[in-house]
Design a protein around this nucleic acid. Sequence first.
RNA 1: GGAGGAAUGGCCGAGUGGUUGAAGGCGGCGGUCUUGAAAACCGCAAGGCUCGCAAGGGUCUCGGGGGUUCGAAUCCCUCUUCCUCCGCCA
Length: 430
Amino acid sequence: MLDRAYLRQHFDEAKARLEDRVDIGVLEQFAETDARRRAAVTEMQALQGQRNELSARVAKAKRAGEDASAMVAQSRQVHAQIGQCEASVHELDEAMNSVLSQIPNVPHESVPAGADESANREVCRWGEPGEFAFEPKPHWDLGVQLGIVDFERAAKLVGSRFAVYCDAGAKLERALMNFMLDVHTSEHGYREILPPFIANSRSLFGTGQLPKFSHDLFKLERTDYWLVPTAEVPLTNLYAGETLAHDDLPMSLTAFTPCFRSEAGSYGRDVRGIIRQHQFQKVELVKFASPETSYSELERLTADAEDILQRLGLPYRKVLLSSGDMGFSAAKTYDLEVWLPGLGEYKEISSCSNFEAFQARRARIRFRSTEGGRGKPEFVHTLNGSGLAIGRTWLAILENYQQADGSVVMPEALHGYLNAERIDPKGELG
RNA sequence: GGAGGAAUGGCCGAGUGGUUGAAGGCGGCGGUCUUGAAAACCGCAAGGCUCGCAAGGGUCUCGGGGGUUCGAAUCCCUCUUCCUCCGCCA
C-alpha cells in the first residue's frame, strides 16, 4: 500500500512511474475518492466538535443544578446528523482502501522501465555452464531413472504437479534445507524461525497476496486460513502491528517451509518435472531495515542467496527486473537464475526484493528511531528473497552434476550433510 | 467441544457514565549535581485522520466491530486472542 499523502502530493510523478504497472484509471479513481473522503471527514469532525461542546455544557449545567433540556434536545439533533455523516465517511474509507490496495508499489529509480521481461537487465554471471561429453538429461528423466523422485505415485496420492521424493532424493532435499539454514544462521547473521505453514487473511493482506491474488493460493475450507505460498508471509507478518526499536534494525530472519501455490493460469507452462509444483520447499530470507539502509541490505540479502549457489558450484546469472516484470509489492527486484543444462536455459531460483514501506504500511510494522532522543514511529522497510528454493536447487544439482554413467556427483559443501559424495547409477548414496 | 475469567500507553498497573487521552510505578529521553558515572532531584514524552503556508486547531482511538446515551475506558451485543477447569488428543 502506498502512502495516501505521498500519492496526493506527488500525483503526476507517481502516475508516470506507475505507467507500466497499473491502469491509470485506478489512479484517477484514487484522486477523486480521496477528495470526497476528505470533504466528508472535515464535515463529520465539525459536527463531532459541536456535539462535544454541547455535552460539556450539559455537564456543567447539571453540576450547577440548572435545566439543560434545550441543549440536550439540540445535541440529539446533532447526533442524528453525525450518524449520517459517519456512514458516508465509512463508505468512502472502504472505497479508499479498496482503490489503494489495487495500486502496486512505485519502482525505485534504478529499475529499468519496461512492460515485461524483455526490459530486464542482466547484472552479472557467475560460473561457467559445464561441458558435457554426452547429452545432459533433464532432471525428470534422470531423477525417475535413479528412483529418487516419483511423479506417478504423487499423482495417485494427490494429483498433477506434486512429487514424492524417495531415498537419496529425500535425503538430498533434507541436506539442502540444513545446509542453507546453517549458512544463513551461522555465517550471514539470520535468526532461525519455524513458523506455522498456515496464515490468515490479514497476514496475506499484509504482504500483498490478498486481495488481488487469491487465485494463486490454497484456502482451507470453512476457515479464514490459507496455506502459505512462501515463508515471506509468516516472517514478514511476525511483527505486524508492532513497533521495533531502532537498535533492532536491520533484523534478518530465515525459515524453512513448504510453499503451496495453486498455479492457476500456468497450465501448459513447466508441466514436466519439479520446476512448477503445487508444493515445494524453500528457505526464505526476510529483513526489516531502516529506510536509509534498505537498499544496501537488498545487496547483502541477494549476496547471501548467491553465496549458496556459489558454495554449491551452480552457474547462475543475476537479473534486475524491469518495472513491468516485478511483483505487485516490490520496489526493486533481483532474480537469480540457475543454469539448467538438461533444459538448456537459465531458470529462476531466487527472487530478492526491497518492498520499502509498501508491506509495512499494510501490516503496520514500524520502528522508533532512538537517535537524538525520542523518535517518531516510522514504517520499516521490508525485504525478502529465496535463499534458495530447494526443489529447484535439487534439480539444478542433478542436471549440472550428472555423469555419463547416470550417477550424480554431490557438491562438496553437501558431503557432510549426506555422509556421501555421490548418488550412484542405481540411485544409492555412496 | 463445554464452563468460567481476562484484554488499558514501550512494559506493569489504577480507573464502573461528565475537564480521564487516561493516576501511580518501571523503562526511555533532557537537565541539575559530579572529574566521569551511580544515586537523588527537576522536567519531557501515545498513535491515526483532518484543517492550516505556518504557528496552531479539530477529531478519533483504552483488543476489533456494532449499539445504548446529550455524553462511554466505564453499560449492552458480537467477534478475536489469552488464562483456569473439564473433555479429547500427538
